[in-house]
């Protein structure tokens, strides 16, 4: 298997311990990516209103989606720098680093495949 470095194909990332159907040859180590984002005050005000009536806060869902995809792509970018073929055992975690701002971080094990 040729390294995915320099290729534009997305690197596979899975939440299980191996890429299904592929064997892992080498464990490179833990890689992670994080993203800290906020929505602006208008969305914050809408969200506060939403808090009165209940229901999905779409603007915050968008915020999480954006943050999650950025965190993931940063994690993959780091794996790419380490010349890994895939990232396995991916986990996501969130933290509230500041009021009304969300941090999402993704971490996993960068591996080379046989």
């Amino acid at each position: 298997m040729t390294p995915t470095k320099n290729t534009t194909a997305p690197m596979p990332a899975v939440t299980v311990s191996s890429i299904p159907g592929r064997e892992t040859s080498e464990n490179i180590g833990i890689v992670f990516g994080s993203s800290v984002r906020s929505r602006n005050f208008i969305f914050d005000i809408f969200a506060a209103f939403k808090n009165l009536f209940g229901g999905e806060v779409r603007s915050y869902t968008r915020l999480l989606e954006d943050a999650q995809s950025e965190a993931t792509s940063r994690m993959l970018e780091q794996a790419k720098k380490l010349e890994a073929d895939a990232v396995v055992d991916v986990h996501f975690a969130t933290s509230q680093v500041a009021y009304k701002a969300a941090e999402i971080f993704a971490y996993g094990t960068a591996v080379r495949l046989k």
Binding site: V36, R37, S38, R39, F41, F43, D44, A98, A101
Partner: peptide, 21 residues
């Protein structure tokens, strides 16, 4: 802290926090 507060109001990426997290 102040930078984060301004950024949260305006919206967008809190790069100051990304470095510390």
């Amino acid at each position: 802290n102040l930078l984060a507060r301004l950024r949260i109001f305006v919206g967008g990426r809190l790069s100051a926090h990304e470095a510390s997290v």
